[in-house]
């Protein structure tokens, strides 16, 4: 039950994009059509779900003073976390290329960009600063990825529709995407009143 709470909280209440602004770059760049947004969203769920437990294990058993080496290596955290993420993204890229060449072609350069998607590293850093247990870390990874997925699908759908609206030229495209994200952020705020413990 505790794990489910973490999932709901990370997917809706503490949504990585809409309340922490993480993963904004690819969120704005890839949200022009629902189809590519869908693929990238799935890739993000996958990468977050895998890297979170790996980084948890590294942090707990290697970097902390209570780990195997008995020394405080937390200053190496950034470098190790980003190395794990970079290699996982490489792996996902290879799997997608084999499993679905169409999706691979559609995602193009955006797959490597997941490496610098702040949502992934941010998730791992949040996991450390909130002192999650292993189960919570897995659940937080999946939930955070799911929240990111929802947000990018929603903005892509809105941007597809808004193309037919009469937007002032200076605001067309990027400017409108920013304002829409702000409005969506406010809409997601209303979920803050939900108490996951009441389920």
């Amino acid at each position: 039950m505790e794990l489910f709470n973490v999932f709901i909280k990370s997917a809706f209440i503490d949504n990585l994009v809409l309340s922490y602004f993480l993963g904004m770059c690819s969120y704005l760049a890839v949200s022009k059509s629902v189809k590519t947004a869908f693929g990238l969203g799935l890739a993000v769920i996958f990468v977050l779900g895998i890297t979170m437990p790996i980084n948890w294990i590294i942090n707990e058993f290697l970097l902390k003073e209570t780990g195997i080496l008995q020394t405080d290596l937390t200053f190496l955290r950034f470098i190790l976390f980003i190395a794990v993420i970079a290699s996982m993204v490489q792996l996902v890229e290879m799997v997608v290329e084999k499993a679905s060449p169409a999706l691979y072609a559609a995602l193009g350069i955006f797959l490597p960009l997941i490496t610098v998607n702040c949502a992934i590293l941010g998730g791992s850093l949040f996991m450390v600063s909130r002192e999650y247990t292993f189960g919570e870390a897995v659940s937080f990874g999946l939930g955070g990825g799911f929240g990111w997925f929802l947000a990018i699908i929603a903005i892509a759908a809105i941007r597809e529709k808004i193309r037919y609206s009469n937007v002032p030229p200076g605001l067309r495209g990027l400017g409108m995407a920013f304002i829409l994200t702000g409005l969506m952020g406010i809409a997601f705020m209303s979920l803050m009143g939900i108490d996951p413990a009441s389920f």
Partner: peptide, 24 residues
């Protein structure tokens, strides 16, 4: 709220692009 940052950047983009029309 974080949302305000999005609005302000949106407006900044609007202002910049109305002066700098080649960016539209």
């Amino acid at each position: 709220l974080p949302a305000a940052a999005m609005f302000i950047i949106g407006i900044l983009i609007w202002i910049q692009r109305s002066y700098n029309t080649k960016l539209v």
